[in-house]
């Protein structure tokens, strides 16, 4: 049981990286971005491209930080994946969502457009890479460490948790300490007043996409390290990240973080009682329950 909770925390940190971006986009851009899961998939495959094609091609040596399953190639691929997806997210906003905003389309239209975008991204990845399950480093034995309380955990999983927490702390410092971060919080608080204050809200929106896309990409890469890659991986994360977002009160970054852990733990613990294929159903059930009992989420006001 304790082991499942630990696995849940690892899964939860990946869900949280998706949920934080989703909740920020909802708060500042004003709609539910159904393409958010595809940002995760996109990040995972960009890193795959860098690790298995780009870096070998330029002759960058292979290495591995034993006992972790990856080495310097992944260290380079990780920020590249985040940056590429960040740019893609901004581009998607400029060519699609911004046009709809200019037409004063409502949140439902924008959400539907994002659903369409998600299909296009997923299919593009499918066409390029095929539908196979892929490892960053195939054929590697990944022994688990024995921790006290008979918890078995792979070193990669400890890394995943630490990496996610590191990114969340970076985000926190960005929002609290930098001028752009404060302006982002101001815009989230009151967009009209931000405009009156002279904050260029379109620029804030671009930053929001960059951060949301970058964090989702990080989540995708971490999931790829933990498990494996598949073009549908991000789509399968969509329900958990929505559940985490709603649970933590839509628009609340710290709520999304907590929500991510709660959903991750619930999903993993459920495997003690249910077949693992019901994991998504568990996230979905939690989401429905929250919507029925406390639609404003745990941190929302009455």
């Amino acid at each position: 049981m304790i082991e499942l909770i630990v696995y849940g925390i690892v899964l939860g940190s990946i869900i949280a990286l998706g949920a934080i971006g989703l909740t920020m986009v909802y708060r500042i851009v004003g709609f539910a971005n159904f393409a958010h899961g595809e940002f995760m998939t996109g990040g995972a495959y960009v890193a795959l491209f860098v690790v298995t094609i780009l870096l070998p091609w330029i002759g960058f040596p292979d290495s591995r930080f034993v006992p972790l399953s990856f080495g310097w190639r992944m260290v380079i691929a990780f920020p590249i994946a985040m940056a590429v997806v960040a740019i893609l997210a901004i581009a998607l906003d400029k060519i699609l969502y911004k046009k709809l905003r200019a037409k004063k389309s409502g949140p439902v239209i924008l959400a539907m457009a994002s659903l369409g975008a998600s299909f296009i991204i997923r299919m593009t990845i499918l066409i390029i890479w095929g539908s196979d399950y892929i490892f960053y480093r195939p054929g590697l034995m990944r022994p688990a460490l024995d921790l006290p309380l008979s918890v078995k955990i792979r070193p990669d999983q400890i890394f995943i948790f630490c990496a996610a927490i590191f990114l969340v702390i970076l985000l926190h410092l960005f929002l609290k300490r930098t001028k752009m971060g404060k302006a982002m919080r101001a815009t989230a608080d009151n967009t009209d007043l931000a405009l009156v204050t002279g904050i260029d809200t379109e620029r804030i929106i671009a930053w929001t996409w960059a951060i949301g896309g970058g964090l989702a990409a990080a989540g995708g890469v971490l999931y790829g390290i933990d498990v494996q890659l598949h073009p549908g991986m991000g789509w399968n994360f969509l329900i958990p990240i929505f559940a985490a977002t709603i649970l933590g009160s839509i628009g609340n970054i710290y709520g999304a973080l907590i929500g991510g852990f709660v959903i991750g733990i619930a999903q993993q613990v459920s495997t003690a009682f249910l077949a693992p294929t019901y994991k998504l159903a568990v996230a979905f059930m939690i989401m429905i329950l929250i919507l029925l009992i406390r639609p404003q989420g745990i941190f929302g006001k009455e």
Binding site: A188, N190, L193, A194
Partner: peptide, 19 residues
Amino acid sequence: NNVFPSLTIQENLEMGAFI
């Protein structure tokens, strides 16, 4: 709605000087 409620007083003033 003429303040940013979740920002501190100091941060509100900083936003005033944003440009």
